[in-house]
Nucleic acid binder design. Structure first.
Length: 197
DNA sequence: GGTTCGATCCTCT
DNA sequence: GAGGATCGAACCT
């Protein structure tokens, strides 16, 4: 079943962990592209120096200051995009960066399943930039409702036990002073599709 | 108007 | 582990 607004409108760390094992779906034309979320990071509040919101409200990060359940897509390094889902209450800037998907369908023909292929998973959607490239997400999708009919997350009944969740530091935020040490990155232990160990 | 640099990824060493 | 690709947001002057 599709996750509703209330799933996202709560503590960001809980949302990030809760998204593991859920399925992200993007309807692109007539195709439905699906991936199982295996890695996510939390970005919480104005005080999180790793977050775009730490420098205050700007045109780019505006969506992070809005209510939960909308997506924040931004361009990074001039060539990649990153997908975030906004969490928590309006005026509190927070979001979960979706960092890796396990591909469960053949990318060339989404109606057929992909055979379990660890290598292909790594190549396709292990990392936030690759994930957006795979799904076809760009800034056009910025602000989209994550509970709508174009892009959403489904619970397909899988439960990830706490012991199977690895909690560690976030990637690529060395500039964030003490905040770089927060263990706000979560991934499914043993998954072949996480971006980095 | 100019400069800096990034929530990345790939290639080469 | 280092460096390049590539560009727009953010922050100067």
């Amino acid at each position: 079943m599709k996750l509703s607004k209330s799933f996202y409108d709560r503590d960001t760390l809980k949302v990030a962990q809760g998204l593991l094992g859920k399925h992200l779906i993007f309807k692109r034309g007539r195709k439905k592209i699906v991936g199982r979320i295996v890695e996510a990071e939390a970005y919480c509040g104005l005080d999180d120096l790793a977050s775009h919101a730490s420098r205050g409200r700007t045109e780019r990060n505006e969506i992070m200051f809005g209510p939960a359940g909308f997506v924040y897509v931004y361009m990074i390094y001039g060539m990649y995009h990153c997908l975030n889902i906004v969490t928590e209450r309006k005026n509190y800037p927070a979001a979960v960066l979706i960092r890796a998907l396990e591909i469960i369908q053949n990318p060339k023909n989404p109606s057929t399943p992909l055979r379990a292929d660890k290598k292909q998973n790594k190549i396709i959607a292990a990392g936030p930039g690759k994930l957006c490239r795979y799904l076809g997400l760009t800034k056009k999708q910025n602000g989209l409702d994550i509970t709508g009919d174009t892009l959403w997350v489904e619970d397909r009944g899988e439960k990830i036990a706490p012991k199977d969740v690895v909690k560690t530091t976030r990637i690529g935020v060395d500039y964030a002073k003490h905040c770089k040490d927060h263990k706000w990155r979560f991934y499914i232990k043993g998954s072949p599709s996480v971006s980095k160990k």
